[in-house]
Write a protein that binds this DNA or RNA. Structure first.
Lengths: 146, 146
DNA sequence: TGACTTGGTTTGCGATGCGTACTACTGCGA
DNA sequence: TCGCAGTAGTACGCATCGCAAACCAAGTCA
């Protein structure tokens, strides 16, 4: 083993985590595709549900280059999901906001994803739900925290 | 709530799961990118580590169209990671196999991913490792099992 | 005012993935 | 043995996606 000091037990945890992530992303991707959306588009709409950011801020949130945003927002705008509004405080700036159609799609999509992912966890007991949330929180924390 | 019969507690489990999957995929994607590979390429190499499938079988494993495989394998071949071998039993068929360079990259990449994902779980106790594997297994099972 | 910064767009490039059409080989029945 | 439906792959055209570099216009600051 290249990472010689990691036990087999830990390796298999890694494996479980990776497989799980592919499972979840697969479901998300499939649901998104049913609405002719990519995962990035979904995330875009999700962000816009409670914010009205500029292009640069969006790029930061999505981990994309600003030049990629132009296209992403442009395509979403062409589909009538999103609108560009000139910033009232900065003549260069643009604020991106959901259209009613975009909001509707965002909400429907989110509900559907909740449902479909929820189906995965349907067989878990209440205690297992708690466990899972706890573990996820701990893993997610480890990133921000240290 | 559209999915009205799902409790808030369950909703937040879904959220945890989704966030976790993005976290893991993000790490994987970053490691892959450091080697100029996409996640699909990594999966391709991983499959080839212990198999020598045809294009169609590969497409099934990766959930891609067969026409997408031509390009994927073609690019990998151009980079010297993979080789196409005419099938000995089927004149139409092609077997895809790792070159030594491809195998080397696949192994190094896998080790690195194990390590990087392992860093996420480093703070978990032994008991939590067991929990996590158990939960993942249960979720993954639910898919195949029904 | 002039230099620099900053928010966005444009352009060009390559990767990715799909659908369709096409080629070549297989297997099978008459 | 011939002929034909089915199968494995490829080629092509299209759209999305993401990056990098060049560029533009509006703000900032000395």
């Amino acid at each position: 083993m290249t990472a010689g000091d990691r036990s087999d037990v830990e390796e298999s945890t890694v494996d479980a985590l990776v497989q799980l992530s592919f499972l979840v992303q697969g479901v998300l991707g499939r649901v998104a595709a049913e609405h002719d959306l990519s995962l990035v588009q979904v995330r875009l709409l999700a962000i816009l549900r409670d914010r009205r950011p500029g292009m640069l801020e969006l790029a930061r949130h999505l981990g994309l280059d600003k030049s990629s945003m132009t296209g992403l927002v442009g395509r979403a705008e062409k589909r009538g999901l999103v609108r560009r509004i000139p910033s009232p405080v900065d003549g260069r700036g643009v604020l991106v906001t959901l259209t009613p159609a975009g909001r509707e799609l965002a909400e429907r999509g989110e509900a559907e994803m909740d449902e479909r992912i929820g189906m995965l966890t349907a067989s878990l007991t209440a205690a297992e739900h708690v466990q899972l949330r706890g573990l996820a929180a701990k893993l997610l924390h480890g990133v921000a925290g240290g």
